[in-house]
Amino acid sequence: MSTNTAYYIPHKATWPVIGTVGLVTMLAGFANYLNGSSIGPTLMVVGLVVFIVMLVGWFTLQAHESEAGMYSTQVGVSYRMGMMWFIFSEIIFFAVFFGTLWYTRNLSVPWLGEGATKELLHSTFEATWPTNGPGKLGGDFKPMGAWGLPFLNTLLLLSSGVTCTWAHHGLLAKNRDQLIKGLIATVSLGFLFVTFQAFEYHEAYTEMGLTLGSGVYGSTFFMLTGFHGFHVCVGAIILSVVLFRSWKGHFQPENHFAFEAAAWYWHFVDVVWLGLFVFVYLI
């Protein structure tokens, strides 16, 4: 393992407060923008830049410390626990939207189409799925099928999980070539996935009449796939950083927390997609 067996406790930290300022500026800007204030976009951009500077600075610092052998095995355990419970919180976040989809399809939409609600309020409404509700919000639309781009995207993400594991094996076997090739493949598959999803969204908006405003079907569809797509982007960016570090010669078979964390995150994104494919597209 690393040269140091002591638990490393940094003395001071400047990045956390910089990151917080960046994030709160960005959010205050976004809130101002939503309220129609002209200062909003400027604040958002400034906040985002500060936040990105923080990410680059903080992660560079951590990478240097890691390569300098400042992290003992025990520090590594703390980091792994941190990442594990962070991913757990993300799973819960997605569970909220999956739960929303379940509740809507199985409870609230059927309730709208039966009994006094149907008789007195909207007798013409048929409670079927997909639906944009009794008010037909957003107008006519076609639901997104499973076997076109979504199925292709499923194959892409599953393969990227394989290439990611292949890269890990390369790292463990001290085969740097395999590590880098595996990561390049993973990152490329990730960005290809996002590109295809962009095509899918474009088609939904321009040809199928399916938008975020298409009642509760449009809401759940875009919320679930949108947040997932955002997570794929984040995961791919993390993996790109890991790729860059691998190319610079970072990581050893016994010291590569960043790689592991990125791989865990990537598999998490992968598994969420399988849930989406089944519950959003397939059934």
């Binding site: 609230s108 709208l112 639906t131 944009n132 008010g135 405003g213 009642g215 509760v216 449009g218 809401s219």
Partner: peptide, 12 residues
């Protein structure tokens, strides 16, 4: 324009 909590769009 989402309808998670809007019955007109099928939400609740």
């Amino acid at each position: 324009h989402t309808s998670f909590f809007n019955a007109a769009g099928g939400g609740d």
